[in-house]
Structure formats: structure tokens, C-alpha cells
Design a protein around this nucleic acid. Structure first.
Length: 475
DNA sequence: TCTGGGGTCCTAGGACCC
DNA sequence: TCTGGGGTCCTAGGACCC
């Protein structure tokens, strides 16, 4: 918490709908809903005219259609237009301070102290905020902003919400608790439905109620980080810094289907599309990542994730797709899949040189050597490539290297079928089993020195019936 | 016609290392 | 031979935000 009210939170009012109304005169003064307009769509933004009928963000569009009168416009989002408007606003804010934290497409914190030239008295920041509001409306062609100014992010954020739309709230230093305590706890960032319910059971309804709960009780109910965080926020004790640039931690894409899907071929095709989107965005950002995750939402809305972390980062859409397909192969999709997603995390801002030919050809080297062909152009009969540790990755701490256990290496054959090395490292080897006519089977984890692991000759079926390209891809 | 899409952070358990 | 604590990495799930 600062001595002066020098943090501004700028929030564009119903931005998506406001941009639509700006760009199309006939929409002005009418209820406008922007969001998914298909069967399972939800509302991204409802204009203030539509909110009067009860339409809200995150509400199913079907519900909004029921509530809003004839003549309401239901529009699919035009992100490019919103992004352009956002850029205009952010550039403008940048003229008031060198330190601007963009929180989302329509929201930012501005550090008014960082500029060093502003009058930080309550009167001074009030005049300043009025000017920012005027300039935003002018520069965007009529999109308005609400601004809160205070001594911390918390107070600024709550202030911007207090008199929406086109509002301005300046919280004078010293009055923070008086401002916060009458408000419902749900106004605090981090209090969603689950936390609200837990607090309600403890008799907590307002931020003031929350400030009366001892820290140990809060930690017990909400956990260490969440409990201490809310304990402090309820006291207006907030020193979270304004952070200019933030590095991405993950990149993902997902899709909800109009009807639940069971067809594995179709799901595989969807994974390819999602992986292509993710890979494209990774490459645009000069990023690559080691962890590949799929997300699967079942027909009943239960949602699971499955992930694998690889030794080397990648931005290759084909590789992402193949790993994602393998992960999906372990999920029961027979009852219907509502949503599927693909993500990449553990990001780094470089791409490891392709020392191992880190694509399908190598990951599935043994399959490729049976005649399915490899995408890196090696002859199908190429022996697996073995590199000394110093040429590949550094040796693991236990002395084993990736060269000891190569992905695709066949290691063991038992009642499950043939076992292939799927991943290795840190003294562990993960083996995937599959048979000639069965889908990829169980994955088992072995210690690298497990005597059960003995490389052996491939069974005959692999030589007689090389998998079709399609089968190889499905792995 | 219940429940999008892109993210972040936290927790908890198991494996492993020192 | 038994016991152990701290730290990191990985996986899975949950809550939350815009």
C-alpha cells in the first residue's frame, strides 16, 4: 500500500459490445450480445442495454436469448477489431507512465508514480484520470473506460468497478478499509463461487466480516497461500507490484463440439488442428516447450488432463499432435467427448537443435524402421542413432543418458505385446506396450537398471505387417 | 439447447537426489 | 541396517480471472 493514490486501474466498459456499437450505428442504444452464437456458446460481453434484461458474461447464449427481447443483436466476436482498439488504448496509457501492466485485452494498471511528473494529490490524480478517460473515448471513437485510482492494485481495481460504466473513483489514502469493508467478499480477487461458499459457511459475507477472521482459521479453511492472501487483502494490505512485461507460461487451444464426439478418427483430426494452432502460436512467439498436455471434457462435463514432459522443447505441430494423439489413446472416449484441448508448457524461448531428429521419425524410430517411412527422410532401415552424451543432452545426475534408452527402442515383450521405450531420464524408463491388432496398451515405468528390461528382437508380426502410416500416426 | 476459450496460480502425492 | 529431512521435478486436478 502506497502513501499516495498513485495506481490507476483502467477498465473498458463492455468492450466487445461497445466496439460493435461504435462500428455499427444501428446497434447503438440496442441490446447487444457478443459471444458464441452456436449451440453451446456463452456470452463474452453483454452491452449495458442487454444487462438490463439479465444477460451476463459467461451465461449460455441460449439463456441470454430467452431473456433478451426481439431486436437484440447476437454477434460472434471480432477479435481483430477489439485488439486494434486495445492497442490504441494501451499506447495512450503508455504516454502517462512508463509502467503499464496490461491485464487483459480491456484492462490495465497504470503506475502514475513511475512517471515522476504527475501531481499525486487526490485532486491531481482526479484531474489526471478525467483526462485519461476523455482521451480514451476520443481515441477509440466512443468506447468508454471506468477508472479507479488508489494506493494499491486492490483499491484501484475495486474502485474502477464501483461506478461503471464511464465511472471514476479515487480512493483517498487512509480511507481504504472504510471503502472495502461494507462490500461483499465476492468483490475481492480470488473469491469465486467455491471460496464464497466456504466463507459463507463461516458466517463471512462482507470484506469487513473477513477481516474479523483470525489468520490460522483462514489458512485452515482456504489453504496457506489463499488464506494468507485474503487475510491481507481484507485489511487493504496489498503491495503487489505493477509488472510491465510478463512471459507466457503456456500456450493452448481447445474446442467444444456442437455434439459430443466418440469417433476416434475425428478426434484425432481435431487434435491435429489444435496442435497446428498451438505450434503456429509458439513459432510466432519464438517459443518452444517441453510439456505437452491434452484436456478432455467428457459428455457429463467431468474434465481430465493428461501430460508428458519430454527432455527437449519443441514447437513442431506434428510432434505436438503425435504426442497428443498418444495421450488421447489412453482416454476412454466411448461415452462421448464434449471438448478437447492441446497445450504446451514448460516454455523456453529457444528451440533445441534437432540433435535426435526430434520428430515422428525418431520418436517412433523403431516403427519407422519397419517400413512405414520416416518423416525426416532417413532410410527406413536406418539403425537407431546413438549419440554420446556430450553431443546430446547432458548426462542425468545418476549417470544415465538419453542415449542409453532411446525413444522407440524395443525393450521387452510380454503378455501385453511389444514394449517400446516411450520416455526416459533420471534413471527411469517409461515403456509403452502394444500388440499387432490392439490399440496402444499400458504404459509402465521401470528403473533403468531393472533386470526385467532386456532389449530383444522384434516379434515377427512387426516384420510381416508393417503398420500403415495411419497406424503409426495414431500412436 | 445449461455451462467458451485463453490463461494463471496453488495443492498434493510420488519419485528421486543429496 | 535403519532412519530422515529438504528440495526439485512431474503429474493431475481445482479454483479463479477476463
Amino acid at each position: 500500500m502506497r502513501r499516495e493514490a498513485s495506481i490507476a486501474h483502467v477498465d473498458l466498459d463492455a468492450m466487445f459490445a461497445a466496439v460493435e456499437q461504435r462500428d455499427k450505428v444501428s446497434l447503438r442504444g440496442r441490446p447487444v450480445i457478443v459471444g458464441g452464437v452456436a449451440g453451446r456458446g456463452v456470452v463474452s460481453t453483454a452491452s449495458y442495454e442487454a444487462r438490463r434484461f439479465g444477460a451476463r458474461s459467461a451465461m449460455p447464449t441460449a439463456e441470454a436469448r430467452r431473456r433478451c427481447p426481439p431486436g437484440t443483436a447476437f454477434l460472434a466476436p471480432r477479435f481483430a477489431a477489439y485488439r486494434r482498439t486495445s492497442e490504441v488504448v494501451m499506447a495512450l496509457l503508455g504516454e502517462f507512465s512508463p509502467l503499464v501492466e496490461q491485464v487483459s485485452i480491456d484492462e490495465a494498471y497504470v503506475d502514475l508514480a513511475a512517471a515522476g511528473c504527475h501531481d499525486l494529490s487526490v485532486e491531481g490524480v482526479t484531474i489526471l484520470a478525467e483526462r485519461i478517460k476523455d482521451l480514451i473515448a476520443e481515441a477509440t471513437g466512443g468506447v468508454t473506460a471506468s477508472i479507479g485510482v488508489g494506493s494499491s492494485k486492490l483499491v484501484a481495481k475495486i474502485g474502477s468497478d464501483l461506478h461503471k460504466p464511464d465511472g471514476l473513483t479515487v480512493a483517498a489514502p487512509g480511507g481504504e478499509r472504510a471503502l472495502l469493508h461494507p462490500l461483499p467478499v465476492t468483490r475481492l480477487p480470488g473469491v469465486g463461487p467455491a471460496t464464497m461458499e466456504r466463507l459463507r459457511r463461516a458466517g463471512v459475507h462482507t470484506i469487513g466480516d473477513l477481516a474479523g477472521v483470525p489468520l490460522p482459521e483462514l489458512v485452515e479453511r482456504l489453504g496457506q497461500a489463499h488464506g494468507t492472501g485474503l487475510y491481507r487483502l481484507a485489511r487493504a494490505d496489498d503491495d503487489r507490484p505493477i509488472v510491465g512485461e510478463r512471459e507466457a507460461k503456456s500456450v493452448s487451444a481447445e474446442e467444444t463440439f456442437d455434439v459430443d464426439l466418440t469417433d476416434r478418427a475425428r478426434l484425432g483430426a481435431e487434435i491435429d488442428l489444435l496442435a497446428a494452432r498451438v505450434g503456429g502460436r509458439l513459432r510466432n512467439g519464438g517459443l518452444s516447450g517441453r510439456t505437452i498436455t491434452i484436456k478432455v471434457r467428457h459428455h457429463d462435463f467431468t474434465t481430465i488432463t493428461r501430460s508428458v514432459t519430454r527432455p527437449q522443447p519443441t514447437d513442431d505441430p506434428r510432434l505436438v499432435a503425435q504426442v497428443a494423439r498418444r495421450l488421447l489413446a489412453e482416454v476412454d472416449t466411448s461415452a462421448g467427448i464434449r471438448l478437447i484441448g492441446v497445450g504446451v508448457s514448460t516454455l523456453s524461448d529457444f528451440v533445441q537443435d534437432d540433435l535426435f531428429g526430434e520428430d515422428a521419425g525418431d520418436l517412433f524410430g523403431s516403427l519407422a524402421s519397419t517400413g512405414s517411412g520416416s518423416e525426416d527422410g532417413h532410410e527406413a532401415t536406418d539403425p537407431p542413432q546413438v549419440l554420446p552424451a556430450e553431443q546430446g543432452e547432458a548426462a542425468n545426475r545418476d549417470g544415465t543418458t538419453r542415449a542409453d534408452w532411446r525413444p522407440g527402442q524395443d525393450v521387452r515383450h510380454d503378455e501385453h505385446g511389444a514394449g517400446w521405450v516411450w520416455g526416459s531420464g533420471r534413471g527411469r524408463v517409461t515403456v509403452r506396450f502394444e500388440g499387432p491388432n490392439t490399440p496402444p496398451g499400458p504404459v509402465r515405468d521401470f528403473a533403468a537398471d531393472d533386470p526385467e528390461l532386456h532389449p530383444s528382437d522384434p516379434p515377427d508380426w512387426r516384420l510381416d505387417q508393417p503398420p500403415k502410416q495411419d497406424d503409426a500416426r495414431r500412436l
